[in-house]
Computed example of a mutant assay.
Amino acid sequence: MLGGAAAVRVKRNVRLYLERAISSARLAIEHFNRPYEEGRREAVLHFALHAHEMLMKAVLLQRGKSIQRRRESKSISVATALRMLGNQGEKVLTESETLSLTAVSNVRDAAQHSVVMLSEQTLYLQTQTAVTVFDKVLKQEFDVSLADFLPSRVLPVSTDPPTSLELLIDTEVSQVKALLEPGRRKTAEAKARLRPLLAIDLAAAGEERTATPLEVDRATNRLKQGRPWREVMPNLASLTLDASGTGQTYNVRLAKAKDAPPVKFAETEDEAESAAIIREVDNEQRYPFALTDLARLASLTAPQATAFVWKLGLKSDEKCCHTFQHGKSRFPRYSHEALSRMREAAAKFSPVEVWRQYRRQRQQDPGHEGQL
């Protein structure tokens, strides 16, 4: 499929992923423009996300990164690929682009595993942001454009984009509230229309998941009570549309509004008087790596990883390290943030020299903690 269009030398195994990425992108656009509705929305979301999964893996492979361990049956997930290519990883995706793709992933998961009702403009928003980021990464990493694989008559994706994100959400929430009016018996339909909005709200706060049934019920009840949607979904209220261009070059991304106040999930019921989402913190998922895992994933020896933990101060940073205690034993565990920082530092500093610095420090200070 790529033929002579690719302007960079693409590795053979990368070409297979890249061809499938472009095929799925074209299928997403084709399904979006279908003249009938059966399965259309679910198909668009499926192919849009699959296109990005294949493209992200192509980028990682082209850069010499591993996407699958030899003894594991599955390659890395979309969420892992997003972290690896985001601001803390390979820096292929900007914060806005990572947010946009997380929203697409969350909405797709909601449609895949539950029942959602997507309005045409909400579907447009997800599809156009996916096409925008796909084309940008394709140009940036492989020096080809998505337009090279589409007839010039094709408009990816629509000639009727939403005028503003706030107006779109106002319209969606108004329809949810109308379905919740007494006597209508349309609560199931209201929840189905609300799930995509909650999925985007979660993405805005950096959560790679869909809303739980409890969170959907909580949001539904609070909207039914007449609470403003900006209170129920405060992370969604912090977003804006970043749009530019026309025709085949029309670009849309979700972005945090510059004047938006910082928002976060409520951590407990007491803090959740208005917000629908309560973050349930699972520290074992937040800090999944032992030191030996960090060493293996960062292509370091265990002593070198120990030295980088010391050099970067990872053990004293709660974003990077948490110590679990079982009886009298203590077990430090590390986060994806710690892994990203270690990989970045290992590319910048000589692991051998960092180990020597750490060893000198231990010699000068015998009480220095060596087992990290």
Rank of each mutant, 00 (worst) to 15 (best):
A111F: 13
H113D: 00
E97R: 11
S77T: 14
Q68F: 03
G89I: 15
Q62T: 06
G86N: 02
L99A: 10
R63E: 12
A79I: 06
S75P: 03
R70M: 03
A110R: 07
H113N: 06
N87V: 15
Q88V: 15
G64Y: 02
Q68A: 05
L85E: 00
T94N: 05
V115H: 11
N106G: 15
G64H: 01
R83S: 14
R108Q: 14
A103P: 14
T98R: 10
S105W: 05
E72C: 01
S75N: 07
A111N: 12
G64P: 02
S114A: 14
E97Y: 12
L93H: 08
V104R: 06
L61T: 01
I67K: 02
T102P: 11
L101S: 08
V104I: 10
T80G: 02
K74A: 08
T94C: 05
I76Q: 02
A79E: 11
V107L: 15
Q62N: 04
L85I: 15
L61H: 01
L101N: 08
A103W: 13
T80N: 04
V104G: 08
Q88R: 13
R70K: 05
R63N: 12
I67C: 03
A103E: 14
T94S: 15
T98H: 10
S100I: 09
T98C: 10
E97C: 13
L99E: 09
E95A: 15
L101Q: 09
S66F: 03
A111C: 12
V116S: 09
D109P: 04
S77P: 06
S73V: 07
L93V: 15
Q88Y: 06
T98I: 09
V92D: 00
